[in-house]
């Protein structure tokens, strides 16, 4: 229950992939950050929200067998480092596929999924996961 505000605060970023861009150097960041690690204090007041496309490619991945409680029903599940087209890399699940279909370099796009549940009576926490792009049909 103590998690409500912590979860709620990030929902724009997790629901819609709202990142930050430093208008001093134009580097895009996700997860969002208030200070640009390149421009430091020159970025103060110049970090703006930016809508990311949710498109990217798999940089690396793993199939998790030893899963935390919230993820046990999905076991085994795939976690990946996804390099977004706008530049930043994030950590997310890849769903709707089997491990043998996953490989580094494959194109993916973001989908909206339930990430975890706070027990049977607590809040539902949603956010991004990724799905492998369908190859164009011949």
């Amino acid at each position: 229950m103590g998690e409500l505000s912590r979860i709620w605060r990030e929902s724009d970023h997790r629901y819609r992939l709202i990142g930050h861009v430093c208008r001093n150097c134009n580097t895009v960041y996700f997860p969002p950050r208030d200070i640009c690690p390149t421009c430091h204090r020159d970025s103060v007041g110049k970090m703006e929200e930016i809508q990311l496309s949710g498109k990217g490619s798999i940089f690396s991945y793993t199939v998790v067998h030893d899963a935390p409680p919230a993820f046990r029903r999905q076991r085994p599940y795939i976690i990946a480092l996804i390099k977004l087209d706008e530049g930043p890399t994030l950590t997310a699940q890849i769903v709707d596929t089997k491990p043998e279909n996953v490989s580094s370099g494959k194109r993916v796009h973001a989908v909206f999924r339930k990430i975890r549940e706070d027990g049977s009576g607590g809040i539902l926490q949603y956010g991004y996961k990724f799905v492998i792009d369908e190859p164009p049909k011949a």
Binding site: R6, A67, P68, I79, T91, G127
Partner: peptide, 21 residues
């Protein structure tokens, strides 16, 4: 915790992604 663990990453999962690459 907000951007790795929240999405199901564990210490072993991160090490595994490093290992694969």
């Amino acid at each position: 915790s907000e951007w790795e663990a929240f999405f199901g990453a564990t210490p072993a999962a991160l090490a595994a992604m490093t290992a694969r690459r």
